[in-house]
Write a protein that binds this DNA or RNA. Structure first.
Length: 269
DNA sequence: CAAATCCCCTGCAGGC
DNA sequence: TGCCTGCAGGGGATTT
């Protein structure tokens, strides 16, 4: 569920607690799907390192370390990064904890769809390499060019992180509603004008969501344990059967590429 | 090369 | 009350 806004909110709040601090101790959970880099390797590589910058590309957090290596974090569906003393050391869903002189950083993830990967100095990560432009940075022309040969529904294209990075199921529905574009429309058939509108809608919804601290549907939490509030501003996501906030027609819920999709048949063409 | 399908994982809601 | 099924979905791997 964490999409670009949730990851950006996490990044901003984590930055002062992580950047400039030296990792004194690394605690890892058992080997699992969560660890792209094996836990023992991760422990060895991170010990003693100081983080020099914390950036974000799409839904990935990228911690730059002082030896030139990088740590990639993805929150998956249920990932949480805490900078508090909670959760407890016995929490079975904690996979990684970094201890600083000033406190500690805990990566918790119930469903283990999240990922951590260590990238060697000068090295690359296939995951990072294949990402399209960040959803907050992509231009209408870039978007138009990237959609041109995709004969798939526009909603499906927006979810493809190789097209643009950061849009997930919630904000795809919200952006398409704001842009009055039906999720089922073939991506390649969007005009340049439609791409301008869509690009603006994506930006606007993401900026608003960041301002509201992201959306907390079930699992997303801020590093201090707080919740986001943007779920209260969702216009269509999760509202199948309810009246359209713009025209009053009944919002529809369909399944598109295995994802629940919400839209207004009257407003979105 | 594009598109479709399956699967990773766990908690929770709904049905009976 | 308790068991079972279905569903939530990011994204990588595999198949068509």
């Amino acid at each position: 569920m964490p999409e670009l806004p949730e990851v950006e909110v996490t990044r901003r709040r984590l930055e002062p607690r992580w950047v400039g601090h030296t990792i004194e101790r690394v605690t890892v959970g058992p080997k699992s799907y969560f660890f792209v880099t094996p836990p023992s390797t991760l422990k060895r590589r991170l010990q003693g390192r100081t983080t020099t910058a914390l950036s974000r590309h799409g839904k990935y957090l990228v911690a730059q370390l002082d030896d030139g290596s990088r740590l990639l974090c993805h929150l998956g569906m249920t990932g949480q990064l805490f900078a508090t003393e909670e959760p407890s050391a016995t929490d079975p869903h904690v996979h990684l904890a970094l201890s600083f002189a000033s406190g500690r950083l805990v990566f918790r993830d119930v469903r283990k769809f999240g990922k951590v990967e260590w990238i060697a100095p000068g090295g690359t990560s296939a995951r990072l390499e294949k990402l399209g432009p960040d959803a907050l940075a992509i231009t209408p022309d870039e978007l138009h060019a990237r959609l041109r040969k995709r004969r798939i529904p526009i909603k499906t294209a927006l979810l493809d992180q190789a097209v643009l990075a950061g849009v997930g199921n919630i904000y795809a529905d919200e952006a398409l509603f704001r842009a009055s574009i039906r999720p089922t429309r073939v991506a390649a058939r969007l005009s340049r004008a439609a791409c301008v509108t869509l690009c603006e809608a994506i930006r606007a919804v993401m900026r608003s969501a960041i301002r509201a601290g992201g959306s907390t549907i079930a699992d997303f939490r801020h590093p201090d344990g707080g919740s986001g509030a943007y779920q209260q501003n969702h216009l269509v996501y999760g509202k199948g059967g309810a009246p359209c906030p713009a025209c009053g027609a009944e919002l529809r819920r369909i399944v598109l590429s295995q994802r629940s999709t919400h839209f207004c048949v009257r407003c979105q063409k």
